[in-house]
């Protein structure tokens, strides 16, 4: 935005409740690509099978003006029910991500991987004599840290869900 060339770039987590109908996700993603907004993470799943509502969690970054624009643009999409900026809450929202991490190796490295997994509270969900698949849940930073360590211990593959988030306290959406 020409108005605020020096404005700070902020990272925001935005939750959106939408009708679970074909094309909704394309609409949201198209909005971001068409208008040049960033998507750092995007997750979506149905949360209310009766009313057929899905919840999309988007992590994005931009100046305050851009973030406000993103929310307004999302809100005007016809099948969108509610938009909420979880980063605007007084207390930081709860953010979680799940990763599956495959580590291949034998001997000392294998034992070290298992030891670190224990420290990070990662579960072993698959094991062979030469490999583990760990399941780990945590913040994005925790997952990054875990993956960073595992990459030195034979990590050959990782799959992450992207961030889901919810506000703290008794208040609802």
């Amino acid at each position: 935005m020409p108005n605020d060339l020096n404005a700070k770039i902020e990272k925001h987590t935005i939750a959106v409740v939408v009708d679970n109908e074909p094309g909704v996700l394309a609409r949201v993603i198209g909005l971001f690509s068409g208008r040049g907004y960033n998507i750092e993470s995007l997750t979506v799943s149905e949360v209310d099978p009766v009313q057929r509502l899905s919840r999309i969690t988007i992590v994005t970054s931009g100046t305050r003006m851009v973030i406000e624009q993103i929310k307004a643009q999302l809100d005007r999409l016809v099948p969108i029910h509610k938009v909420r900026d979880l980063s605007d809450d007084e207390k930081p929202c709860i953010e979680r991500e799940l990763a599956l991490v495959k580590v291949v190796g034998t001997g000392e490295k294998r034992i070290e991987a298992l030891r670190l997994a224990d420290i990070f509270k990662a579960r072993v969900v698959d094991a062979t004599l030469t490999s583990f698949v760990f399941e780990i849940t945590g913040t994005g930073d925790e997952l990054n840290e875990f993956a960073g360590l595992m990459s030195q211990l034979g990590m050959i593959e990782t799959s992450r869900t992207g961030i889901v988030a919810i506000g703290r306290g008794p208040g609802g959406f």
Partner: peptide, 11 residues
């Protein structure tokens, strides 16, 4: 009438 027009180009 369109909230996305607000502060889009000019604050």
């Amino acid at each position: 009438i369109d909230p996305s027009s607000i502060n889009k180009n000019v604050a």
